[in-house]
Structures are given as structure tokens and as C-alpha cells.
Nucleic acid binder design. Structure first.
Length: 173
DNA sequence: CCAGTGATCAGG
DNA sequence: CTGATCACTGGA
């Protein structure tokens, strides 16, 4: 299978989050071996107006990569312990990202970052060219559920209730 | 329910 | 510099 193209990553985060379900996340380790995971849970964060999106606070050192064209990695440390893996989507200057919450049977954004041994060096990594991490195409999933996003109570009703979390049923792992 | 843990950002 | 906050997890 081939890598997803720049056209895929240029889509809006809500579309990309849905379509990323079932795609193959491939991690190449330091010793050259590879592990392939199926993406099973995602969340979309869409633009400065989305109060739950980090970019709602504007352009900073941390959010900078979200302002670039889709196809890059956005990682950040949360609670001093967990590296959160996101995929930047959309076009330049339109900050968006898709959070990877689950791969195979590893459910939980913090656990995903741990499993993939994420760290700050992956910030801005290019998914189109990186030799450490890539996403390969796979048939679109048509059977999945949606719920509001997790852990964003601060965002206010309008944004916290958006059904922008996408989940594959466990039986399809 | 709640503690742990440290980068990041706004404000002096 | 200081202090608040945080897209979380695991254990009481």
C-alpha cells in the first residue's frame, strides 16, 4: 500500500478524522524493524474558532505546525507524562489537526503516544517523507460511531458537543 | 474520586 | 521570574 497523499491531508480535519479510520499507521524503529497499526479512534480539532483546538489561543511556538499545510505531525506533552500524536490537516494558515486516540486495541491518546515512543523530536515530522513514521492507504471504513470529544469541558457547550470523535467498532480491529 | 508531572504561555 | 493550566491514566 502507498502513503496517503498531500491531497488527503489537505482535507478538513472532520473529514480526515473519519477517513483516517482503518488506515495503516506504520512506525519504523531505530533498529530498522517496522510495526504496522490500524487506526481505530480519532478526534478532529478544527480551526481558531474551535474553542477546544489549541489554535483557538492563536499562533504560538506550540501551535505553529498546525498552521502549515496538512501532512505533518503535531505532538505535545500533556500533564508532564503523555505525548499526544496528532496529524495536521487542511491548507496553510488554516490550523487543524486530527488526534490519534486509538491504534489496534491500544485505546487512549496517551497510550498511543507511549506505544509509538513519541517525543518532541517528532514535532513537525513530515508524514509524506519521514522514515520513522508514515500512514498508508487502506479502504475507507463505512461502519463507525461518533461521540463528542473527550476531556474538553472547558470549551463551552457549542464546541464540546460537536460529534467529532470517530470510533471503529472493536470487532473490526 | 484524585494525584502525578513538566512544558508552555500570559502576566509582572 | 512566577503561577495556572492541561485534547490523560491508573489507582483508591
Amino acid at each position: 500500500m502507498n502513503r496517503l497523499t498531500t491531497e488527503f491531508f489537505k482535507q478538513d480535519a472532520v473529514i480526515a478524522a473519519e477517513k483516517l479510520l482503518g488506515k495503516k499507521l506504520v512506525r519504523t524503529w531505530d533498529d530498522g524493524s517496522e510495526t504496522s497499526y490500524k487506526i481505530t479512534e480519532t478526534e478532529a480539532y478544527l480551526g481558531e474558532e474551535d474553542k477546544a483546538c489549541h489554535a483557538s489561543k492563536g499562533r504560538t511556538l506550540r501551535t505553529e505546525v498546525m498552521y502549515s499545510e496538512g501532512g505533518k505531525v503535531y505532538v505535545y506533552l500533556i500533564y508532564g507524562m503523555y505525548w499526544m500524536l496528532n496529524v495536521v490537516t487542511g491548507t496553510e494558515n488554516h490550523p487543524q489537526a486530527v488526534l490519534i486516540r486509538g491504534i489496534d486495541n491500544i485505546i487512549g491518546s496517551g497510550k498511543v503516544g507511549g506505544e509509538l515512543k513519541m517525543n518532541k523530536s517528532f514535532y513537525g515530522e513530515n508524514l509524506l517523507t519521514s522514515c520513522r513514521i508514515r500512514i498508508e492507504d487502506a479502504p475507507d471504513e463505512t461502519y463507525f460511531s461518533t461521540t463528542p470529544r473527550i476531556g474538553i469541558d472547558y470549551a463551552g457547550d457549542e464546541w464540546k458537543n460537536k460529534p467529532w470523535r470517530f470510533i471503529l467498532p472493536k470487532s473490526r480491529n
